[in-house]
Structure formats: structure tokens, C-alpha cells
Design a protein around this nucleic acid. Structure first.
Lengths: 117, 117
DNA sequence: TTCTTTTGTAACAAGGTTGTAACCTGTCTC
DNA sequence: GAGACAGGTTACAACCTTGTTACAAAAGAA
């Protein structure tokens, strides 16, 4: 392999690594796993207040997490011109593909929490 | 149900919730998912320096993460009186049970990272 | 007119987390 | 004696993140 090729390859790997890290940082943010989990539990779009209630965090944090998920193409935000405002969040196809992993991870968490009581 | 029973039940649920939250906070710490993943990739015990290299973080952070995993019973630490010192970390049975979820989660992450290049 | 509701945002103080640099142990080698 | 190595620990400044509080918009109800 030429040095040039090797360099191109390395830069590609570094790019992939950066994307992986990016996603891991995203998933590691506080309440992020909870947010994805509560949204997975119900296949229908969910309103801001409902997510906030189930995740049990401040508006600021929930809004931040949902914004980050939207930025990453993992949720869609739909606002309806009702009064008062109605906003619905739904998982994208991509996020739904994560569902099985998330579910079995939460099962593990619940099992562990149970046995430590 | 009596009020007393209801209170006991509620306190139990709150206790379970606290344990779940505890685990989610643990898993959400920086480099925690990476640490578990690199340890999962190799079934043999792994040395501190190897983990540090693969996780690509500072000694301080890696030591902190490994300490927290040990506190939660997810890894075991074995020190050998060689010169220089040798310390091996291994996942416990509990942590190994998390392997499938973690693996499919990383597959999802890698897929996403790929398609965003 | 003022209150209520939902869904946020802005600013900021308080607290948490990170990496760096320095240091430590214990023994073998130069 | 001086270095080197593995595997850390400690202290600390810099940075990041959180929740709280205040605010906003829009329109129907009291």
C-alpha cells in the first residue's frame, strides 16, 4: 500500500472514530438513555410535557436532550398551532433501530436493580 | 390496600427507581460505554495500560471508571507482584450478561457512523 | 383585564468532571 | 546512584453541565 493510500485510510478511520465518539458522547449525556427509553415504550408520538414527566427532569434539560436528538436525526419535532401550543416528538426510523439494544439493556438494568434490593 | 401498604410499596418503587438511576448515571459517565465495550471485545482479562490505550483517555479517567465499575461489581481487579507491577481487569458474570445489548448498540453506532461519512 | 395553559428560552450561580503535572512504590538494569 | 517501567494517586485550574428563576407568545375563560 502506498503511503498516500495509508494516509487516506487512516484519515477515514479517524473520521469514523470521531463519529462513533460523537454518538457515544450523545448517548452518555444525562437522561439521554431514559429519554430514548420512554419514547420507545410508546410507539405514538409523545408530547413535551409527557416526556418531561416520565424522564423526571427539568424543562431545560429535557429540551436540551430533545434538541440534541433532533440535531442527530433521531427524533422529529412537530408543532401544532393549537392554544396552548402542542408539540409532538417521535423517534425516527434510525432511532427505532436502536430499540432492541436499548430494551435489553434496560432489562439488564432492571434485573440488577431488583437483585440489589 | 391500606395506606401503610401503599406507603411501603411506594418506598420500594422509589428504591428500585434509585437503583435504576444509579446504574444509568454509571453507564452515562464519560468513556464508560467504551470501557465496557473494549473489555467485552476480548474475553481475557485486560491490563490497565491496554484498556487505557484502547479507550484513549487519561490515566485518571480510566482509573476512575475502572474503580466505579469495581464498586458496582462489574469488574474484578487482580494485582500480580511482578516487576514492574501487573494488574488485570476482568468483567464479572453480571457485566458479561450485558454484552449482547452492548454489542448490538455498538453495531448500531458503527452503522450510523458509516452512513454519515 | 387578568389568569391559565403549553412549550420552551436566556442568564446565571452552584456544583460536577476532566486532564495535567507532580509524585509514589518496588525492583531490575546500567 | 540514576533510570525505567506499570499502575496508579493527589491537587488543582479550567471547563462543562445542571437546575432555578424569570420571561415569552397566543388565545380562550372568568
Amino acid at each position: 500500500m502506498s503511503q498516500e493510500q495509508s494516509q487516506r485510510m487512516q484519515s477515514m478511520c479517524e473520521s469514523a472514530k470521531a463519529h462513533v465518539d460523537d454518538l457515544l458522547v450523545l448517548l452518555s449525556k444525562s437522561k439521554m438513555l431514559s429519554t430514548l427509553y420512554v419514547m420507545n415504550c410508546d410507539p405514538d408520538p409523545m408530547r413535551f410535557s409527557e416526556i418531561k414527566k416520565r424522564v423526571d427532569s427539568s424543562s431545560t434539560t429535557v429540551a436540551r436532550r430533545l434538541g440534541e436528538l433532533e440535531d442527530h436525526g433521531l427524533v422529529t419535532r412537530t408543532a401544532y398551532a393549537t392554544v396552548p401550543a402542542t408539540v409532538e416528538y417521535a423517534l425516527t426510523k434510525d432511532a427505532i433501530a436502536l430499540q432492541p439494544s436499548l430494551e435489553s439493556m434496560f432489562e439488564w438494568v432492571l434485573n440488577r436493580a431488583d437483585s440489589s434490593l
